[in-house]
Simulated assay, not measured.
Amino acid sequence: MDYLGKDIKKLGFGLMRLPMSEKDVDIEQTKEMVDLFMAKGFTYFDTAYGYIKGKSEEAVKTALVERYPRESFQLATKLPAWEADTAHKAKDMIYTSLERTGAGYFDYYLLHNVSASRNNTFNDFGIWDYVQELKAKGLVLHAGFSFHDKADVLDRILTEHPEAEFVQLQINYADWESESVQSRLCYEVALKHNKPIIIMEPIKGGALANPAQSVRKILQEANPKASFASWAIRFGASLDNIITVLSGMSTLEQMKDNLSYMDDFKPLSTEEKAVISQAQAAIAAIPSIPCTSCGYCLEECPQHINIPQVFEARNQHMVFDDLNGAKMSYRIAMMFGSSNPSKCIACSNCENVCPQQINIIETLKETTALLD
């Protein structure tokens, strides 16, 4: 099958979680990781304007751009227009990214984290048309967007913007049937629109590298030599129409592990897919808050608490025993629109409309105590 990026190897280096030395990127370890990655023939690097407060893009310049021929790799970065208060400031972001990286141009340029609410900013600032102008100038070779929202929103955006050449989606086997992330549904929408896909969060922020004991048992019995992360990355890479699967590697050891099974990548066999199905069933059996992200509570909450997003963070701890990841997801919810759950006034509006009959008020108190 011919599609954009079909010849790129199916492991990409995500530069959001680079090794750190105190508050700065550990540039020497990053160089080692880049060198090993390139030596094995892997060429796709993914950063963003805001990663590590700009230090990720700066590390790209030092560890990659200044040390390898520009045509020997693909570099992606992202434009978060919603961080700017004017169209001019938003449009100027690419020039900051070009200066930081020294790349000259970006092979893949993404509107960062497009969603139902944030797309208004991209529309109001004229960013969709702007990236086409950047393509005409040769500063961008291919333009698309990263996405964190529901499948119906993705369908609408791709219908309104057929010029998008690709989409970056959160896809992993734990979120495949998730009511909130909707990995499978979003994947199917992208296929419907004939858009190739870059996969992000294949290990769910590291949670699938150290899964729950019931999942560990299933995977270890199936293949005691395979790392838990390998199951997750190979799941994504085995799907159709995939440009690459991004792994946010933080150590040289993680890089070596990923390369050990992706250097000569083999898609999941029928038997291995059955193992993944067992792992998914084990995850579904772990007790969690039964929130389906229907959104009814959002319309009724006078304090503007994003209850589904808060519960998603809590479930990350309950299902994956990932307290650090849960706290990060909780903070992200606060950063992007939700009021702090501690502001709950116990009005019961949310509980009166919840189809799952969740004891929302008490669960919010428990979540705040754990994650705040």
Results as ranks from 00 to 15, higher is better:
residue 149 D to L: 07
residue 192 K to Y: 06
residue 192 K to V: 02
residue 192 K to P: 00
residue 173 Y to C: 05
residue 201 E to L: 01
residue 136 A to D: 00
residue 165 E to Y: 14
residue 129 D to S: 06
residue 134 L to P: 01
residue 176 W to I: 09
residue 213 Q to T: 08
residue 142 H to M: 07
residue 178 S to V: 01
residue 182 Q to W: 04
residue 221 E to Y: 06
residue 209 A to W: 06
residue 175 D to L: 04
residue 174 A to H: 12
residue 215 V to L: 02
residue 184 R to F: 11
residue 168 Q to L: 15
residue 217 K to H: 05
residue 183 S to A: 15
residue 143 A to C: 03
residue 200 M to E: 02
residue 129 D to E: 13
residue 194 N to R: 09
residue 143 A to T: 03
residue 139 L to C: 01
residue 203 I to Q: 14
residue 177 E to A: 10
residue 221 E to F: 09
residue 185 L to G: 11
residue 157 I to R: 00
residue 151 A to K: 05
residue 149 D to I: 11
residue 167 V to H: 14
residue 203 I to Y: 04
residue 150 K to S: 05
residue 211 P to L: 13
residue 209 A to G: 15
residue 131 V to C: 14
residue 205 G to W: 12
residue 155 D to F: 06
residue 200 M to S: 03
residue 194 N to E: 13
residue 164 A to M: 15
residue 130 Y to G: 01
residue 170 Q to I: 15
residue 197 I to V: 14
residue 164 A to T: 14
residue 196 P to C: 12
residue 172 N to D: 12
residue 169 L to I: 14
residue 129 D to N: 08
residue 189 V to I: 09
residue 141 L to E: 09
residue 142 H to L: 10
residue 219 L to N: 08
residue 209 A to S: 15
residue 158 L to Q: 07
residue 145 F to R: 02
residue 138 G to K: 06
residue 221 E to W: 03
residue 203 I to R: 06
residue 150 K to W: 01
residue 215 V to H: 01
residue 145 F to H: 13
residue 154 L to W: 07
residue 130 Y to R: 06
residue 212 A to V: 10
residue 164 A to L: 14
residue 156 R to P: 00
residue 182 Q to L: 11
residue 218 I to E: 13
residue 154 L to K: 08
residue 163 E to A: 11
residue 155 D to W: 12
residue 172 N to G: 05
residue 203 I to N: 10
residue 166 F to M: 15
residue 130 Y to F: 10
residue 151 A to E: 09
residue 141 L to D: 14
residue 172 N to H: 11
residue 180 S to T: 07
residue 217 K to Y: 05
residue 188 E to N: 05
residue 138 G to S: 03
residue 182 Q to G: 05
residue 171 I to M: 08
residue 217 K to M: 05
residue 161 H to S: 07
residue 172 N to F: 10
residue 178 S to I: 02
residue 136 A to E: 00
residue 157 I to T: 09
residue 204 K to P: 04
residue 169 L to M: 04
residue 129 D to Y: 00
residue 138 G to E: 11
residue 216 R to D: 04
residue 192 K to L: 04
residue 185 L to S: 15
residue 195 K to Y: 11
residue 139 L to H: 00
residue 205 G to N: 15
residue 180 S to Q: 13
residue 147 F to T: 04
residue 200 M to Y: 03
residue 152 D to T: 07
residue 215 V to M: 02
residue 174 A to F: 14
residue 171 I to D: 07
residue 160 E to N: 08
residue 197 I to G: 02
residue 176 W to D: 14
residue 218 I to D: 12
residue 133 E to C: 02
residue 146 S to Q: 09
residue 172 N to Y: 12
residue 153 V to K: 08
residue 214 S to I: 01
residue 178 S to R: 04
